[in-house]
Design a binder for these strands. Structure first.
Length: 490
RNA sequence: GGGCCCGUAGCUCAGUCGGUAGAGCAUUUGACUUUUAAUCAAAGGGUCAUGGGUUCGAAUCCCGUCGGGCUCACCA
Protein backbone atom coordinates (compact mmCIF):
# COMPACT_ATOMS: atom_id res chain seq x y z
CA UNK A 1 0.00 0.00 0.00
CA UNK A 2 1.24 3.44 -0.83
CA UNK A 3 1.58 5.73 2.15
CA UNK A 4 0.28 8.71 0.26
CA UNK A 5 -3.46 8.65 -0.02
CA UNK A 6 -4.83 9.54 -3.42
CA UNK A 7 -7.45 12.22 -3.72
CA UNK A 8 -10.02 9.63 -4.72
CA UNK A 9 -9.27 7.38 -1.79
CA UNK A 10 -9.32 10.31 0.63
CA UNK A 11 -12.75 11.34 -0.59
CA UNK A 12 -14.01 7.83 0.11
CA UNK A 13 -12.33 7.71 3.51
CA UNK A 14 -14.12 10.97 4.34
CA UNK A 15 -17.46 9.43 3.41
CA UNK A 16 -16.65 6.34 5.44
CA UNK A 17 -15.95 8.55 8.46
CA UNK A 18 -19.19 10.41 7.87
CA UNK A 19 -21.13 7.13 7.81
CA UNK A 20 -19.52 6.10 11.05
CA UNK A 21 -20.36 9.50 12.57
CA UNK A 22 -23.97 8.75 11.71
CA UNK A 23 -23.65 5.54 13.73
CA UNK A 24 -23.86 3.49 10.55
CA UNK A 25 -21.77 0.37 9.83
CA UNK A 26 -21.01 0.13 6.12
CA UNK A 27 -19.46 -3.32 6.68
CA UNK A 28 -22.40 -5.25 8.14
CA UNK A 29 -22.44 -8.92 9.02
CA UNK A 30 -25.21 -10.00 6.76
CA UNK A 31 -27.51 -8.86 3.99
CA UNK A 32 -29.78 -11.23 2.13
CA UNK A 33 -31.21 -10.26 -1.26
CA UNK A 34 -34.30 -12.13 -2.41
CA UNK A 35 -34.12 -11.18 -6.08
CA UNK A 36 -31.55 -10.84 -8.84
CA UNK A 37 -31.23 -8.47 -11.74
CA UNK A 38 -31.53 -10.76 -14.73
CA UNK A 39 -34.51 -12.79 -13.48
CA UNK A 40 -36.28 -9.52 -12.64
CA UNK A 41 -35.59 -8.17 -16.13
CA UNK A 42 -37.10 -11.37 -17.53
CA UNK A 43 -40.08 -11.45 -15.21
CA UNK A 44 -41.06 -7.84 -15.91
CA UNK A 45 -40.05 -7.57 -19.53
CA UNK A 46 -43.64 -6.79 -20.52
CA UNK A 47 -44.18 -4.13 -17.86
CA UNK A 48 -45.11 -0.96 -19.77
CA UNK A 49 -43.08 2.22 -19.52
CA UNK A 50 -44.08 4.46 -16.64
CA UNK A 51 -45.91 1.68 -14.82
CA UNK A 52 -45.46 0.96 -11.11
CA UNK A 53 -46.11 -2.36 -9.40
CA UNK A 54 -46.83 -3.30 -5.81
CA UNK A 55 -44.18 -6.03 -5.96
CA UNK A 56 -41.54 -5.63 -3.24
CA UNK A 57 -38.04 -7.00 -3.80
CA UNK A 58 -34.63 -6.82 -2.12
CA UNK A 59 -31.59 -6.73 -4.35
CA UNK A 60 -27.87 -6.31 -3.71
CA UNK A 61 -24.88 -5.57 -5.87
CA UNK A 62 -22.27 -3.10 -6.90
CA UNK A 63 -23.09 0.50 -7.84
CA UNK A 64 -21.56 0.74 -11.31
CA UNK A 65 -22.86 4.18 -12.20
CA UNK A 66 -24.63 6.96 -10.36
CA UNK A 67 -26.64 9.71 -12.04
CA UNK A 68 -28.50 12.75 -10.81
CA UNK A 69 -26.82 12.78 -7.40
CA UNK A 70 -27.84 9.26 -6.60
CA UNK A 71 -31.38 9.36 -7.92
CA UNK A 72 -30.42 6.72 -10.47
CA UNK A 73 -27.96 3.94 -9.68
CA UNK A 74 -26.95 1.11 -11.99
CA UNK A 75 -26.72 -1.94 -9.77
CA UNK A 76 -24.78 -4.97 -10.99
CA UNK A 77 -25.11 -8.38 -9.39
CA UNK A 78 -23.93 -11.82 -10.47
CA UNK A 79 -26.75 -12.11 -12.97
CA UNK A 80 -26.80 -8.70 -14.63
CA UNK A 81 -27.83 -5.10 -14.14
CA UNK A 82 -30.88 -3.33 -12.81
CA UNK A 83 -31.47 0.32 -12.12
CA UNK A 84 -32.17 1.62 -8.63
CA UNK A 85 -34.43 4.64 -8.42
CA UNK A 86 -33.90 6.66 -5.26
CA UNK A 87 -36.47 9.36 -4.78
CA UNK A 88 -36.87 11.36 -1.61
CA UNK A 89 -40.57 10.68 -1.60
CA UNK A 90 -39.87 7.00 -0.88
CA UNK A 91 -36.82 7.23 1.39
CA UNK A 92 -36.52 8.48 4.93
CA UNK A 93 -34.09 11.13 6.12
CA UNK A 94 -31.53 8.62 7.28
CA UNK A 95 -31.45 6.75 4.01
CA UNK A 96 -31.01 9.99 2.12
CA UNK A 97 -27.98 10.75 4.27
CA UNK A 98 -26.51 7.35 3.39
CA UNK A 99 -27.12 8.06 -0.26
CA UNK A 100 -24.95 11.15 0.00
CA UNK A 101 -22.07 8.93 1.11
CA UNK A 102 -22.40 6.60 -1.87
CA UNK A 103 -19.53 6.19 -4.31
CA UNK A 104 -19.37 4.31 -7.55
CA UNK A 105 -18.07 0.85 -6.74
CA UNK A 106 -19.77 0.56 -3.36
CA UNK A 107 -21.83 -2.54 -2.77
CA UNK A 108 -25.39 -1.71 -1.82
CA UNK A 109 -28.52 -3.47 -0.71
CA UNK A 110 -31.88 -2.06 -1.70
CA UNK A 111 -35.49 -2.91 -0.91
CA UNK A 112 -38.32 -1.35 -2.84
CA UNK A 113 -41.00 -1.85 -5.44
CA UNK A 114 -40.61 -2.70 -9.10
CA UNK A 115 -41.43 -0.07 -11.67
CA UNK A 116 -40.49 0.81 -15.19
CA UNK A 117 -39.48 4.42 -15.75
CA UNK A 118 -41.13 6.50 -18.44
CA UNK A 119 -37.89 6.16 -20.41
CA UNK A 120 -38.24 2.39 -20.29
CA UNK A 121 -35.73 1.29 -17.67
CA UNK A 122 -36.83 -1.41 -15.26
CA UNK A 123 -36.03 -0.14 -11.78
CA UNK A 124 -36.30 -0.92 -8.13
CA UNK A 125 -37.78 2.18 -6.50
CA UNK A 126 -35.90 2.20 -3.23
CA UNK A 127 -37.79 2.34 0.06
CA UNK A 128 -34.77 1.20 2.03
CA UNK A 129 -31.17 1.76 1.05
CA UNK A 130 -28.00 0.30 2.60
CA UNK A 131 -24.33 0.44 1.88
CA UNK A 132 -23.14 -3.08 2.68
CA UNK A 133 -19.50 -2.65 1.59
CA UNK A 134 -17.91 0.76 1.27
CA UNK A 135 -15.27 0.69 -1.47
CA UNK A 136 -12.15 2.75 -0.81
CA UNK A 137 -10.68 2.45 -4.28
CA UNK A 138 -12.38 3.79 -7.40
CA UNK A 139 -13.36 1.53 -10.27
CA UNK A 140 -11.77 1.98 -13.69
CA UNK A 141 -13.46 4.33 -16.07
CA UNK A 142 -16.94 3.24 -17.09
CA UNK A 143 -16.60 3.58 -20.83
CA UNK A 144 -13.16 2.21 -21.68
CA UNK A 145 -12.96 -0.03 -18.64
CA UNK A 146 -9.71 -1.68 -17.62
CA UNK A 147 -7.49 -2.60 -20.56
CA UNK A 148 -4.00 -2.68 -19.08
CA UNK A 149 -3.09 -6.35 -19.31
CA UNK A 150 -0.73 -6.33 -16.36
CA UNK A 151 -3.34 -4.77 -14.07
CA UNK A 152 -5.98 -7.18 -15.35
CA UNK A 153 -3.81 -10.12 -14.26
CA UNK A 154 -2.47 -8.65 -11.04
CA UNK A 155 -5.89 -7.39 -9.96
CA UNK A 156 -8.12 -10.02 -11.49
CA UNK A 157 -10.88 -9.01 -9.06
CA UNK A 158 -11.10 -5.63 -10.78
CA UNK A 159 -11.05 -7.30 -14.19
CA UNK A 160 -13.95 -9.50 -13.09
CA UNK A 161 -15.93 -6.51 -11.81
CA UNK A 162 -15.49 -4.43 -14.91
CA UNK A 163 -14.81 -6.67 -17.94
CA UNK A 164 -17.81 -8.87 -18.63
CA UNK A 165 -16.11 -10.59 -21.58
CA UNK A 166 -13.11 -11.60 -19.50
CA UNK A 167 -15.39 -12.80 -16.73
CA UNK A 168 -17.48 -14.82 -19.15
CA UNK A 169 -14.40 -16.63 -20.47
CA UNK A 170 -13.13 -17.41 -16.98
CA UNK A 171 -16.51 -18.68 -15.83
CA UNK A 172 -16.84 -20.81 -18.95
CA UNK A 173 -13.47 -22.36 -18.18
CA UNK A 174 -14.81 -23.39 -14.77
CA UNK A 175 -17.87 -24.93 -16.41
CA UNK A 176 -15.68 -26.81 -18.86
CA UNK A 177 -13.61 -28.37 -16.08
CA UNK A 178 -16.78 -29.17 -14.19
CA UNK A 179 -18.23 -30.87 -17.28
CA UNK A 180 -15.07 -32.94 -17.71
CA UNK A 181 -15.42 -34.10 -14.13
CA UNK A 182 -19.08 -34.93 -14.67
CA UNK A 183 -18.24 -36.98 -17.76
CA UNK A 184 -15.77 -39.16 -15.91
CA UNK A 185 -18.03 -39.50 -12.91
CA UNK A 186 -20.86 -40.65 -15.17
CA UNK A 187 -18.55 -43.22 -16.72
CA UNK A 188 -17.62 -44.61 -13.33
CA UNK A 189 -14.07 -43.30 -13.14
CA UNK A 190 -12.84 -42.66 -9.62
CA UNK A 191 -11.43 -39.20 -9.02
CA UNK A 192 -8.21 -39.27 -6.98
CA UNK A 193 -5.50 -36.92 -5.78
CA UNK A 194 -1.91 -38.05 -6.09
CA UNK A 195 1.23 -36.32 -4.78
CA UNK A 196 2.48 -33.09 -6.25
CA UNK A 197 5.95 -33.59 -4.72
CA UNK A 198 7.72 -36.32 -6.63
CA UNK A 199 11.01 -37.89 -5.52
CA UNK A 200 11.74 -38.75 -9.17
CA UNK A 201 10.60 -36.83 -12.21
CA UNK A 202 8.46 -38.98 -14.45
CA UNK A 203 5.43 -39.29 -16.63
CA UNK A 204 6.42 -36.65 -19.15
CA UNK A 205 9.43 -35.15 -20.82
CA UNK A 206 9.87 -31.74 -19.23
CA UNK A 207 12.11 -29.49 -17.18
CA UNK A 208 10.98 -29.69 -13.56
CA UNK A 209 10.77 -27.24 -10.69
CA UNK A 210 12.79 -28.44 -7.73
CA UNK A 211 12.07 -27.61 -4.11
CA UNK A 212 13.36 -28.62 -0.71
CA UNK A 213 11.05 -30.47 1.65
CA UNK A 214 12.27 -29.55 5.14
CA UNK A 215 10.46 -32.19 7.17
CA UNK A 216 11.94 -34.95 5.03
CA UNK A 217 15.19 -33.11 4.33
CA UNK A 218 15.02 -34.07 0.66
CA UNK A 219 14.75 -32.24 -2.61
CA UNK A 220 11.61 -33.02 -4.55
CA UNK A 221 10.39 -32.34 -8.05
CA UNK A 222 7.07 -30.62 -8.49
CA UNK A 223 5.15 -33.05 -10.63
CA UNK A 224 5.25 -32.66 -14.40
CA UNK A 225 2.53 -35.29 -14.81
CA UNK A 226 0.34 -37.60 -12.74
CA UNK A 227 0.84 -40.63 -14.96
CA UNK A 228 2.98 -42.97 -12.92
CA UNK A 229 0.96 -42.67 -9.71
CA UNK A 230 -2.31 -43.19 -11.54
CA UNK A 231 -0.97 -46.31 -13.21
CA UNK A 232 0.11 -47.60 -9.81
CA UNK A 233 -3.54 -47.25 -8.79
CA UNK A 234 -4.60 -49.33 -11.77
CA UNK A 235 -2.09 -51.97 -10.68
CA UNK A 236 -3.80 -51.76 -7.30
CA UNK A 237 -7.12 -52.66 -8.91
CA UNK A 238 -8.69 -49.26 -9.44
CA UNK A 239 -9.80 -49.99 -12.99
CA UNK A 240 -11.03 -46.57 -13.92
CA UNK A 241 -9.31 -43.60 -12.39
CA UNK A 242 -8.81 -39.93 -13.19
CA UNK A 243 -7.21 -36.85 -11.74
CA UNK A 244 -7.56 -33.16 -12.52
CA UNK A 245 -4.80 -31.11 -11.04
CA UNK A 246 -1.86 -28.79 -11.45
CA UNK A 247 1.30 -29.85 -13.20
CA UNK A 248 4.44 -27.75 -13.18
CA UNK A 249 6.97 -27.48 -15.98
CA UNK A 250 9.82 -25.04 -15.66
CA UNK A 251 9.63 -23.86 -19.23
CA UNK A 252 8.62 -20.88 -21.31
CA UNK A 253 5.46 -18.82 -21.20
CA UNK A 254 3.53 -17.95 -24.34
CA UNK A 255 -0.06 -18.02 -25.43
CA UNK A 256 -0.11 -21.82 -25.51
CA UNK A 257 2.18 -22.56 -22.55
CA UNK A 258 2.22 -21.69 -18.88
CA UNK A 259 4.50 -23.32 -16.31
CA UNK A 260 1.66 -24.03 -13.89
CA UNK A 261 -1.16 -25.67 -15.76
CA UNK A 262 -4.13 -27.89 -15.04
CA UNK A 263 -3.80 -31.39 -16.36
CA UNK A 264 -6.37 -34.12 -16.74
CA UNK A 265 -5.28 -37.73 -16.85
CA UNK A 266 -7.55 -40.78 -16.99
CA UNK A 267 -6.82 -44.50 -17.12
CA UNK A 268 -9.19 -47.23 -18.21
CA UNK A 269 -8.30 -50.86 -17.70
CA UNK A 270 -9.02 -53.58 -20.26
CA UNK A 271 -8.87 -51.19 -23.21
CA UNK A 272 -6.38 -50.05 -25.80
CA UNK A 273 -5.78 -46.70 -27.46
CA UNK A 274 -8.60 -47.28 -29.93
CA UNK A 275 -11.01 -47.38 -27.02
CA UNK A 276 -9.46 -44.17 -25.72
CA UNK A 277 -9.82 -42.45 -29.09
CA UNK A 278 -13.53 -43.07 -28.80
CA UNK A 279 -13.67 -41.96 -25.18
CA UNK A 280 -11.87 -38.68 -25.91
CA UNK A 281 -14.27 -37.93 -28.74
CA UNK A 282 -17.18 -38.60 -26.40
CA UNK A 283 -15.59 -36.48 -23.68
CA UNK A 284 -15.07 -33.44 -25.88
CA UNK A 285 -18.50 -33.76 -27.41
CA UNK A 286 -20.06 -34.07 -23.95
CA UNK A 287 -18.25 -30.97 -22.72
CA UNK A 288 -19.24 -28.90 -25.76
CA UNK A 289 -22.84 -30.01 -25.41
CA UNK A 290 -22.94 -29.43 -21.70
CA UNK A 291 -21.32 -26.01 -21.71
CA UNK A 292 -22.51 -24.54 -24.99
CA UNK A 293 -25.67 -26.55 -25.59
CA UNK A 294 -24.70 -27.43 -29.15
CA UNK A 295 -22.51 -29.73 -31.25
CA UNK A 296 -21.15 -27.00 -33.47
CA UNK A 297 -18.91 -24.13 -32.52
CA UNK A 298 -17.33 -21.46 -34.67
CA UNK A 299 -13.73 -21.32 -33.52
CA UNK A 300 -11.13 -19.04 -35.09
CA UNK A 301 -13.45 -18.66 -38.06
CA UNK A 302 -13.91 -22.40 -38.61
CA UNK A 303 -17.17 -24.17 -37.92
CA UNK A 304 -16.22 -27.27 -35.99
CA UNK A 305 -18.75 -30.09 -35.74
CA UNK A 306 -18.08 -32.05 -32.58
CA UNK A 307 -20.74 -34.63 -33.34
CA UNK A 308 -18.49 -36.39 -35.87
CA UNK A 309 -16.05 -38.95 -34.44
CA UNK A 310 -12.48 -37.70 -34.57
CA UNK A 311 -10.47 -39.47 -37.29
CA UNK A 312 -7.33 -41.31 -36.25
CA UNK A 313 -4.49 -40.99 -38.77
CA UNK A 314 -0.89 -42.05 -38.40
CA UNK A 315 1.77 -39.39 -38.08
CA UNK A 316 3.77 -41.07 -40.84
CA UNK A 317 0.81 -40.84 -43.22
CA UNK A 318 0.13 -37.22 -42.30
CA UNK A 319 3.72 -36.30 -43.06
CA UNK A 320 3.48 -38.23 -46.31
CA UNK A 321 0.30 -36.38 -47.18
CA UNK A 322 1.86 -32.95 -46.58
CA UNK A 323 5.39 -33.52 -47.86
CA UNK A 324 5.27 -36.63 -50.02
CA UNK A 325 8.03 -38.40 -48.11
CA UNK A 326 7.78 -41.62 -46.14
CA UNK A 327 9.85 -41.67 -42.96
CA UNK A 328 9.34 -45.39 -42.55
CA UNK A 329 11.58 -45.76 -45.63
CA UNK A 330 14.61 -44.62 -43.60
CA UNK A 331 16.13 -46.34 -40.59
CA UNK A 332 19.01 -44.25 -39.29
CA UNK A 333 18.94 -40.80 -37.77
CA UNK A 334 21.31 -39.59 -40.50
CA UNK A 335 18.99 -40.73 -43.29
CA UNK A 336 16.04 -39.24 -41.43
CA UNK A 337 17.77 -35.87 -41.15
CA UNK A 338 18.57 -35.95 -44.84
CA UNK A 339 14.96 -36.78 -45.66
CA UNK A 340 13.84 -33.89 -43.44
CA UNK A 341 16.22 -31.57 -45.22
CA UNK A 342 14.81 -32.66 -48.57
CA UNK A 343 11.46 -31.19 -47.51
CA UNK A 344 13.00 -28.07 -46.03
CA UNK A 345 13.15 -28.99 -42.36
CA UNK A 346 16.38 -28.62 -40.39
CA UNK A 347 16.42 -31.57 -37.98
CA UNK A 348 20.16 -31.73 -37.36
CA UNK A 349 19.67 -31.14 -33.63
CA UNK A 350 17.49 -34.25 -33.36
CA UNK A 351 19.30 -37.14 -31.73
CA UNK A 352 17.19 -40.00 -33.07
CA UNK A 353 14.79 -41.01 -35.83
CA UNK A 354 11.69 -40.35 -33.76
CA UNK A 355 12.68 -36.81 -32.90
CA UNK A 356 13.23 -36.08 -36.59
CA UNK A 357 9.75 -37.36 -37.38
CA UNK A 358 8.32 -35.20 -34.58
CA UNK A 359 10.22 -32.17 -35.89
CA UNK A 360 8.95 -32.59 -39.45
CA UNK A 361 5.42 -33.07 -38.11
CA UNK A 362 5.67 -29.89 -36.02
CA UNK A 363 6.98 -27.88 -38.95
CA UNK A 364 4.86 -29.21 -41.78
CA UNK A 365 1.69 -30.77 -40.43
CA UNK A 366 0.65 -29.42 -37.05
CA UNK A 367 -0.73 -26.07 -38.20
CA UNK A 368 -2.86 -27.73 -40.89
CA UNK A 369 -4.87 -29.79 -38.40
CA UNK A 370 -7.94 -27.63 -37.86
CA UNK A 371 -10.68 -30.22 -37.33
CA UNK A 372 -10.31 -32.52 -34.32
CA UNK A 373 -8.00 -35.42 -35.17
CA UNK A 374 -6.03 -38.11 -33.38
CA UNK A 375 -2.47 -38.18 -34.73
CA UNK A 376 -1.42 -41.74 -34.05
CA UNK A 377 1.39 -44.25 -33.98
CA UNK A 378 4.23 -42.13 -32.74
CA UNK A 379 7.89 -43.10 -32.98
CA UNK A 380 8.97 -45.24 -30.08
CA UNK A 381 11.99 -42.99 -29.36
CA UNK A 382 9.83 -40.14 -28.16
CA UNK A 383 7.27 -42.07 -26.14
CA UNK A 384 8.77 -44.22 -23.39
CA UNK A 385 5.53 -45.15 -21.60
CA UNK A 386 3.42 -46.46 -24.48
CA UNK A 387 3.09 -50.01 -25.77
CA UNK A 388 5.04 -50.96 -28.87
CA UNK A 389 2.77 -50.85 -31.90
CA UNK A 390 1.22 -54.23 -32.63
CA UNK A 391 2.14 -53.93 -36.35
CA UNK A 392 5.44 -52.04 -36.32
CA UNK A 393 8.16 -52.27 -33.68
CA UNK A 394 9.51 -48.78 -34.50
CA UNK A 395 6.25 -47.17 -33.42
CA UNK A 396 4.13 -47.08 -30.30
CA UNK A 397 0.39 -47.08 -29.75
CA UNK A 398 0.23 -43.44 -28.87
CA UNK A 399 -1.84 -40.68 -30.41
CA UNK A 400 -2.01 -36.95 -29.81
CA UNK A 401 -5.33 -35.16 -30.22
CA UNK A 402 -5.17 -31.92 -32.20
CA UNK A 403 -7.68 -29.16 -32.67
CA UNK A 404 -7.15 -25.84 -34.44
CA UNK A 405 -3.49 -26.62 -34.94
CA UNK A 406 -2.82 -27.16 -31.27
CA UNK A 407 -2.08 -30.31 -29.34
CA UNK A 408 -4.86 -30.81 -26.86
CA UNK A 409 -3.97 -34.14 -25.34
CA UNK A 410 -2.52 -37.57 -25.82
CA UNK A 411 -3.35 -41.21 -25.19
CA UNK A 412 -1.59 -44.57 -25.20
CA UNK A 413 -2.07 -48.22 -25.00
CA UNK A 414 -0.10 -48.22 -21.78
CA UNK A 415 3.12 -50.17 -21.72
CA UNK A 416 2.56 -53.00 -19.26
CA UNK A 417 5.61 -55.19 -19.63
CA UNK A 418 7.95 -54.30 -16.73
CA UNK A 419 11.05 -55.58 -18.50
CA UNK A 420 10.35 -53.52 -21.62
CA UNK A 421 9.54 -50.50 -19.49
CA UNK A 422 12.92 -50.85 -17.82
CA UNK A 423 14.64 -50.89 -21.21
CA UNK A 424 12.72 -47.77 -22.28
CA UNK A 425 13.74 -45.96 -19.13
CA UNK A 426 17.35 -46.92 -19.77
CA UNK A 427 17.09 -45.40 -23.24
CA UNK A 428 15.72 -42.23 -21.65
CA UNK A 429 18.61 -42.16 -19.19
CA UNK A 430 21.01 -42.43 -22.12
CA UNK A 431 19.30 -39.41 -23.72
CA UNK A 432 19.61 -37.62 -20.40
CA UNK A 433 23.32 -38.32 -20.30
CA UNK A 434 23.56 -36.96 -23.82
CA UNK A 435 22.34 -33.63 -22.46
CA UNK A 436 18.57 -33.95 -22.83
CA UNK A 437 17.47 -32.64 -19.44
CA UNK A 438 13.85 -33.30 -20.32
CA UNK A 439 14.33 -37.02 -20.71
CA UNK A 440 12.58 -39.11 -18.11
CA UNK A 441 14.25 -40.68 -15.13
CA UNK A 442 14.35 -44.34 -14.26
CA UNK A 443 11.62 -44.82 -11.70
CA UNK A 444 12.26 -48.11 -9.96
CA UNK A 445 9.12 -47.91 -7.86
CA UNK A 446 7.10 -47.72 -11.07
CA UNK A 447 8.91 -50.74 -12.52
CA UNK A 448 8.18 -52.50 -9.25
CA UNK A 449 4.49 -51.70 -9.58
CA UNK A 450 4.37 -53.05 -13.13
CA UNK A 451 6.12 -56.16 -11.87
CA UNK A 452 3.01 -57.04 -9.89
CA UNK A 453 0.99 -57.22 -13.11
CA UNK A 454 -0.55 -54.28 -14.95
CA UNK A 455 -3.78 -55.16 -16.70
CA UNK A 456 -4.04 -54.01 -20.34
CA UNK A 457 -4.90 -50.37 -19.93
CA UNK A 458 -5.35 -47.25 -21.98
CA UNK A 459 -4.68 -43.79 -20.62
CA UNK A 460 -5.04 -40.21 -21.69
CA UNK A 461 -3.89 -36.75 -20.73
CA UNK A 462 -5.37 -33.42 -21.71
CA UNK A 463 -4.56 -29.80 -20.88
CA UNK A 464 -7.61 -28.24 -19.28
CA UNK A 465 -6.35 -24.72 -19.89
CA UNK A 466 -5.84 -25.49 -23.54
CA UNK A 467 -9.26 -27.08 -23.85
CA UNK A 468 -10.75 -23.96 -22.28
CA UNK A 469 -8.74 -21.65 -24.51
CA UNK A 470 -9.83 -23.48 -27.65
CA UNK A 471 -13.50 -23.76 -26.75
CA UNK A 472 -13.87 -20.19 -25.49
CA UNK A 473 -11.87 -18.64 -28.29
CA UNK A 474 -9.60 -16.93 -25.75
CA UNK A 475 -6.57 -15.23 -27.27
CA UNK A 476 -4.12 -16.65 -24.76
CA UNK A 477 -3.96 -19.35 -22.13
CA UNK A 478 -3.68 -16.68 -19.46
CA UNK A 479 -7.17 -15.49 -20.30
CA UNK A 480 -8.56 -18.80 -19.02
CA UNK A 481 -6.43 -18.74 -15.86
CA UNK A 482 -7.80 -16.74 -12.95
CA UNK A 483 -4.46 -15.62 -11.56
CA UNK A 484 -1.61 -16.00 -14.06
CA UNK A 485 1.83 -15.89 -12.48
CA UNK A 486 3.73 -12.64 -13.06
CA UNK A 487 7.05 -11.36 -11.85
CA UNK A 488 7.16 -9.94 -8.35
CA UNK A 489 6.62 -6.22 -8.07
CA UNK A 490 9.77 -4.47 -6.82
C1' G B 1 17.04 -16.40 -23.72
C1' G B 2 17.00 -13.15 -28.76
C1' G B 3 14.38 -9.20 -31.50
C1' C B 4 10.63 -5.33 -31.59
C1' C B 5 7.29 -2.20 -28.79
C1' C B 6 5.17 0.01 -24.31
C1' G B 7 5.16 2.45 -19.03
C1' U B 8 2.33 10.27 -18.50
C1' A B 9 -3.68 11.95 -13.12
C1' G B 10 -7.82 6.64 -10.01
C1' C B 11 -9.06 4.76 -15.43
C1' U B 12 -8.67 5.46 -20.96
C1' C B 13 -5.34 8.19 -23.68
C1' A B 14 -2.89 12.90 -26.20
C1' G B 15 1.73 15.41 -25.65
C1' U B 16 4.50 18.21 -32.54
C1' C B 17 11.22 20.20 -33.47
C1' G B 18 14.08 19.34 -26.52
C1' G B 19 11.31 25.17 -24.15
C1' U B 20 5.99 26.24 -17.74
C1' A B 21 2.11 18.91 -17.96
C1' G B 22 -3.06 18.08 -21.39
C1' A B 23 -8.20 15.94 -22.51
C1' G B 24 -12.46 12.71 -21.42
C1' C B 25 -14.44 9.85 -17.54
C1' A B 26 -13.78 9.77 -12.22
C1' U B 27 -13.16 13.25 -7.68
C1' U B 28 -14.63 18.08 -5.01
C1' U B 29 -18.16 22.46 -4.86
C1' G B 30 -22.56 24.47 -6.88
C1' A B 31 -26.94 24.31 -10.28
C1' C B 32 -30.68 21.13 -12.30
C1' U B 33 -34.01 16.93 -11.18
C1' U B 34 -37.33 10.76 -14.26
C1' U B 35 -31.63 10.07 -16.00
C1' U B 36 -29.34 6.26 -19.76
C1' A B 37 -21.48 7.38 -21.05
C1' A B 38 -27.46 12.52 -17.69
C1' U B 39 -26.58 17.84 -18.39
C1' C B 40 -24.48 22.84 -17.02
C1' A B 41 -20.68 25.89 -14.26
C1' A B 42 -16.24 25.93 -11.52
C1' A B 43 -12.15 23.66 -8.83
C1' G B 44 -8.54 20.19 -7.20
C1' G B 45 -5.53 16.13 -8.69
C1' G B 46 1.35 14.51 -11.65
C1' U B 47 8.47 11.69 -8.39
C1' C B 48 5.93 11.72 -16.76
C1' A B 49 8.14 3.44 -14.04
C1' U B 50 13.23 4.01 -11.96
C1' G B 51 18.65 5.45 -11.75
C1' G B 52 22.31 7.89 -14.44
C1' G B 53 24.04 10.88 -18.77
C1' U B 54 23.87 14.87 -22.67
C1' U B 55 21.94 19.99 -22.52
C1' C B 56 21.13 26.74 -20.55
C1' G B 57 16.75 23.55 -20.43
C1' A B 58 14.54 16.45 -20.88
C1' A B 59 7.96 13.26 -20.51
C1' U B 60 10.71 14.00 -25.25
C1' C B 61 17.61 12.37 -26.94
C1' C B 62 21.42 8.42 -24.98
C1' C B 63 22.77 4.30 -21.38
C1' G B 64 21.44 1.04 -17.31
C1' U B 65 17.56 -1.14 -14.17
C1' C B 66 12.39 -2.68 -13.00
C1' G B 67 7.64 -4.17 -14.92
C1' G B 68 4.47 -5.46 -19.10
C1' G B 69 3.06 -6.82 -24.27
C1' C B 70 4.03 -8.97 -29.10
C1' U B 71 7.22 -12.25 -31.58
C1' C B 72 11.15 -16.01 -32.54
C1' A B 73 13.52 -20.18 -30.27
C1' C B 74 12.34 -24.45 -26.58
C1' C B 75 8.50 -27.28 -24.20
C1' A B 76 2.46 -29.45 -24.05
Amino acid sequence: MTEEVSEQRQSRLNKLAKLQDLGYNPYPYRFQPDSYAHPLQEKYKNLPNGENTEDRVTVAGRAMAVRNDGMFIDLKDKTGNIQIFCHKSHLDENNLKLLKCLDIGDIIGVSGFIRRTPRGELSVAAEKFDIIAKALEPLPEKFHGLTDVETRYRKRYVDLIINDDAKQILLTRCKIVSAVREFFNQNEFLEVETPTFHPIMGGANAKPFITHYNALDNDFYLRVATELYLKKLVVGGIDRVFEIGKNYRNEGIDKNHVPEFTGLEAYMAYGDYNDMADLIYKLVRFVVNKVFGTDKLVLEGHEIDFSKPFPKVSIIDLIKRETGVDFLSVETVEDARALAKSVGVDADHCSNWGKVVQEVFDEKVEATLIEPIHVSDMPKDISPLAKTHRDNPRLVEHFDTYLLGMELGCAYSELSNPLEQLERFKAQMAERENGDDEAQMLDESFIDALSYGFVPTTGMGMGMDRLAKLLTGAATLRDVILFPTLKKMK
